[in-house]
Amino acid sequence: MQPNGAAPLNCLWRWVLPECWGPLGILFEQISPYWFAYVGVALAIGLSVLGAAWGIFITGSSLVGASIQAPRITSKNLVSVIFCEAVAIYGIIAAIVMATRIGYASVAESDPVTKFGGYALFAAGLVVGLSNLFCGLSVGVTGSSCALADAQDATIFVKLLIVEIFASALGLFGVIVGIIISSKATLGGDASAGR
């Protein structure tokens, strides 16, 4: 760390060394914990909805096409669409839990509990959002194949549904971890009282 706070040039390739992290630390200190917390909430709901919407259009377009020749598959295969929709619901649940941890900014932003809370909610948002995004894609692709396969062979649906259930469970893992992380976070309100 050089006196003027700038990183030495060789930090460009030694960026993994702790003494090079100074500028990053300053950067993060300048950003409000509330910013991190609310961006975390936005990531949780936004990425989840992206995953769900993506999954629904992958499944839905195949389902609509396949049901022309085999109309019987529509009601059964709505389950695939519902699985995709559930991913968005996971995102909403996580986002609501996270949002309830944030109160009005009654304490200084440099308060350690508040800073911890900001980073915790940011991480929780990423955990929930990314796991739901990939879960939604996975359910969408399997749901699309499931609709096409069901249209060809009516006996195969239940077996394929198991595959979709496993794909759908992936998102739940993220939600569980996200809720555990966010349960430790407290911002604002009477945070400094040690609640």
């Binding site: 259009f57 992958i58 377009s61 609509v64 096409g65 396949a66 022309i68 020749q69 692709v141 249209a151």
Partner: peptide, 17 residues
């Protein structure tokens, strides 16, 4: 896998039917 269905998913399913 991720982008095909946006434009072609419907027609692919129709043809399979």
């Amino acid at each position: 896998m991720l982008t095909f269905n946006a434009d072609n998913g419907y027609l692919e399913a129709v043809v399979r039917g």
